[in-house]
Design a binder for these strands. Structure first.
Lengths: 150, 150
DNA sequence: GCTAATGTGTACCATTGAGGTACGGATTAA
DNA sequence: TTAATCCGTACCTCAATGGTACACATTAGC
């Protein structure tokens, strides 16, 4: 079904919510309650996002998480890549030529790479600020230029 | 990692190969051998593709499979949908509004639907004939118009 | 008709990964 | 010092993926 996994879904929802008040600091329990998610799950996701440099964490009492950049500067593609690795439709696109014995006579792998790039680009066109505003997201998806080719 | 599953991968490879000789009739064993795939797996995939109307099957001795349409008229999106269901990044996009208790205060679902549609469109722009020819596929991906919006 | 070659359907199994939980330790504000 | 919070690791459970097996239906060719 070509689905993102649940962690990624949670991550996007949480980050979009945080993007509404970019300056505020949020803790895991608070976010979990606000979105009806299991608290440990939220912590797990947040940790990965910190690791990827999308969030900053503040430890200790009155600690929490804050966006590492402006919401406009964080794209959906980055969130997905932070939570589930590179955007690649097939194993061989991700792992490179050596991963599959059939690369040489496989006519599909190159095209999969192109397709993956196009999708990556579409996901890179939508940022967190737009995520919560369908109209803005549509505009971003429409106006993006076709950078593919060569 | 946003990957298609293995069955889908096999399906695309097999169909692309068949698209090279659109008139020919192929049997499962022959295709399995040609691409180094397990024969039962190939049968499984073929069956689904017949069911989806992308292949025609001929039973009995000298039977086999043939493309149900011109290779140019079968898109990668159709193959994916035949083998793994609708192209939808999140559960709620696939199952509709009622599937998730948070739809009303979830700002992300609408945007996910738009993104899914864009990806669906990109996958729909590449057909089987192009799949084996990266240059043609790139051209198709580039030249497609942005139909989104409204 | 008989037989061999083929697709069809169903059922089954093993392994992996997703999703979720638990807990102890490190860090810091007050 | 204490309580709040993040961090790391390890663990568990269940469903889906990937793959297999086999009996049955269909048909070409003899």
């Amino acid at each position: 079904m070509l689905r993102i996994n649940r962690e990624t879904d949670y991550g996007v929802v949480i980050l979009s919510a945080m993007a509404q008040s970019p300056a505020e600091r949020f803790n895991a329990a608070q976010l979990a309650a606000a979105h009806g998610l299991p608290q440990p799950m939220v912590s797990k996701v947040m940790k990965q996002l910190v690791h990827a440099g999308l969030l900053r964490s503040f430890r200790g009492a009155k600690g929490g998480y804050g966006l590492a950049r402006e919401p406009e500067a964080i794209t959906v593609a980055e969130v997905i890549e932070a939570l589930e690795g590179p955007i690649a439709f097939t194993e061989c696109v991700k792992a490179g030529r050596d991963s599959c014995e059939h690369v040489d006579d496989c006519h599909a792998s190159t095209t999969w790479a192109r397709i993956s790039a196009v999708v990556r680009e579409a996901l890179g066109a939508v940022n967190l600020a737009e995520m919560g505003q369908p109209a803005a997201a549509s505009a971003a998806l429409c106006s993006r230029q076709q950078l593919m080719g060569h």
